[in-house]
């Protein structure tokens, strides 16, 4: 296929991945990499590199809007960023030494987990009223806007959250994804932060985490300008459109449908990885 045709196709696909990622809360990366690899036959390493860059772009664009709304907790974010950044460096270094097949299998497993999380959307955990000892010492409690005023909250189990972020960062560096699902899980379910605080703080962290891996990706030649250009522009635009649509349409059935799609992609990724097709 010629470069111009493939560029157009990749742009259209990335636009769709961006819209769906924003609507379902799955994020762009988990849909993007399997699409590029399985549908467009792009090399896995180029796909992962392009995804990592697009993750930085969407995180930066969304963080600008979220900061204004007052949900993002910068203290919690920066505290957890320490282990997430360390993990991202580790993941990116390891990625350069692993065979593409192995990365594909790990990617497939993470996809299955994302599908599972998305399928059974957790019920909102009641935010903790009492801070854990570390959270109290670091004054990580804050308040968030609710109808008719501000409600205060305190994180608990901060050490556990810190540990999970190491895993989230490593997956991000290894697979070029934002690991938003794991990050939100750590903050929402483990540290018992309000859901909106978790998602916006996770988004704030995603760009920084991905940037930590980016230097190593550039060095290892994972970032191909020809592939990354339509992906970055498509996902960024798609995420903007998705965020606007989100306020108007019901996403329940969409989410269920795409958890099945992701499950299918997960099996295909694992099969491709194991059969040495990549």
């Amino acid at each position: 296929m010629t470069i111009i045709n493939l560029t157009m196709l990749i742009f259209a696909g990335s636009l769709a991945a961006g819209v769906i990622g924003a609507l379902t809360g799955l994020g762009g990366g988990v849909l993007l990499v399997p699409m590029l690899v399985l549908l467009f036959h792009i090399n896995l390493r180029y796909a992962v590199g392009a995804s990592l860059i697009s993750v930085i772009a969407t995180s930066s664009g969304a963080a600008a809007a979220y900061l204004r709304e007052g949900y993002t907790n910068l203290r919690v974010g920066m505290f957890l960023q320490v282990s997430a950044t360390a993990g991202a460096l580790l993941g990116a270094i390891v990625a350069g030494h692993l065979r593409a097949g192995v990365i594909a299998v790990i990617f497939g497993l993470v996809l299955m987990y994302s599908a599972f999380l998305s399928f059974r959307r957790q019920e909102e955990v009641e935010p903790s009223g009492l801070p854990g000892p570390l959270a109290a010492r670091l004054k990580m409690g804050s308040s968030y806007p609710v109808p008719g005023g501000w409600k205060s909250y305190y994180p608990c189990h901060s050490f556990a959250g810190f540990g999970i972020m190491l895993v989230a960062g490593t997956l991000s560096g290894l697979l070029g994804i934002g690991s938003g699902a794991v990050k939100v899980l750590a903050m929402d379910q483990v540290m018992r932060l309000p859901y909106k605080v978790s998602t916006t703080t996770s988004n704030f962290m995603i760009g920084i985490t991905a940037a930590a891996s980016a230097g190593i990706y550039f060095r290892d030649g994972f970032i191909d300008p020809g592939v990354t250009m339509p992906v970055m522009l498509g996902v960024f635009l798609g995420a903007l459109v998705g965020a606007k649509l989100l306020m108007r349409i019901k996403t329940e059935s969409l989410r269920l449908f795409f958890s099945l799609v992701i499950l299918a992609m997960a099996l295909e990724m694992i099969y491709s990885g194991l059969s040495g097709k990549l």
Partner: peptide, 12 residues
């Protein structure tokens, strides 16, 4: 644009 794309093989 009219050249063939070689994104399938990783060459770095």
């Amino acid at each position: 644009g009219t050249e063939r794309a070689h994104y399938r093989i990783f060459r770095g």
